[in-house]
């Protein structure tokens, strides 16, 4: 028996969310008195995979098949299912990402496992029962969910688990083949189009976010948001009406019907704080609100606030960040 962790890699690097997933998996293994093995997908280097030892992983399975570089639902599912069989995995942990959720739901049917997505804490288990805490009602609540059966699959929400860093520990990297055939790549994407990300920081993975609403008045003013984001090393985001009128691209829209984020720092500029917007951001650790209306509902959900004009306040903040050095 073991715990199997699915690690997503991109451009040779292990994704930040996968470091969290690996740390989660190794702690579950400890709870269950077993070890954690990882199976890596995407473009990885052996050196970076070995470093997963720092997150408590003992062994990493890697299939260097070049067609696995980009996500292919059929092939990824088969690969991970094969790894789970080989390792006799009782718990499989993956990221609550578009890849993790797509694979996790298929795996749960194929392996007859129970599945919890959007999980935010380590499980509670007494050997027989197994309960995890997950986000529900689009960020407005949490639910404790009991998972039945021999096998469990857990998809961990980004930024909810602290990654472990035990310097110097390394994992053994073992080559692995699931004997994939052409048929397993039938649903391979025809084309992958990446966006230009401000400063290369992806919103779903970001630990700092600067976000703008209708109070920014127009797309031409977004330089103020981008400047502060760049100075902080933050990703940029926006409210729904802003992406609805194409001031900003749709993938920046956060909220109940957009992306849910839980960064360490969320700075809201000219956003009123409607309930649907708050649902997507209220699990952020620290929320800063800049709004000229002292009655804006967002202040009730904030840790720090400035009642003022964004056009006056934002340049001052950017300047102050630069002065920090």
């Amino acid at each position: 028996m073991s715990v199997l962790v699915v690690v997503e890699c991109d451009g040779g690097e292990v994704k930040k969310s996968s470091l969290e997933v690996a740390s989660y998996g190794s702690q579950v293994a400890q709870l269950l008195g077993t070890s954690a093995t990882a199976v890596a997908v995407g473009e990885a280097t052996e050196a970076n995979l070995a470093k997963l030892g720092e997150q408590g992983i003992t062994k990493v399975l890697y299939d260097a098949e070049p067609r696995l570089k980009d996500f292919v639902n059929g092939a990824y599912t088969k690969l991970i299912a094969a790894a789970a069989q080989q390792e006799d995995a009782k718990v499989i942990v993956l990221a609550n990402s578009n890849i993790g959720a797509a694979v996790g739901s298929r795996l749960s049917v194929r392996l007859q496992a129970s599945l919890a997505t959007n999980v935010v804490e380590l499980p509670k288990t007494d050997g027989s029962s197994f309960t995890v805490k997950r986000g529900a009602f689009s960020g407005k609540a949490f639910a404790d969910v009991t998972l039945a059966g021999e096998r469990k699959i857990i998809a961990v929400k980004k930024n909810s688990i602290e990654a472990l860093h035990e310097a110097g520990k390394t994992a053994e990297v073992v080559s692995f083949s699931a004997q994939l055939s052409d048929a397993d790549f039938a649903d391979a994407p025809k084309q992958v189009v990446m966006q230009d990300q401000a400063g290369g920081i992806l919103l779903p993975e970001a630990d700092k976010v600067v976000s703008g609403g209708r109070g920014m008045k127009g797309p031409e003013n977004w330089k103020l948001i981008e400047d502060l984001a760049q100075a902080l090393g933050a990703a940029t985001a926006c409210s729904k009406p802003v992406s609805d009128v194409d001031w900003r691209p749709h993938h920046e829209h956060v909220g109940q019907t957009g992306i849910t984020v839980s960064p360490n720092l969320y700075i809201a500029c000219g956003i009123s704080g409607a309930i649907q917007h708050l649902a997507g951001v209220n699990s952020s650790k620290v929320i800063v609100v800049i709004n000229k209306d002292p009655e804006a509902p967002f202040f009730k959900a904030a840790d720090y606030g400035i009642v003022g004009d964004v056009f006056d306040v934002l340049p001052k903040l950017t300047q102050a960040v630069k002065e920090l050095g």
């Binding site: 309960t131 960020g139 407005k140 949490f142 404790d144 009991t146 039945a148 059966g149 606030g305 009642v307």
Partner: peptide
């Protein structure tokens, strides 16, 4: 295969700390 055993609301915020715009 799964069952909710309990629900909880997120912890309430402590209250906002306001900083004057002049000293942003």
């Amino acid at each position: 295969r799964t069952e909710v055993s309990a629900y909880a609301l997120p912890p309430a915020k402590q209250g906002v700390k306001l900083i004057p715009a002049e000293s942003a």
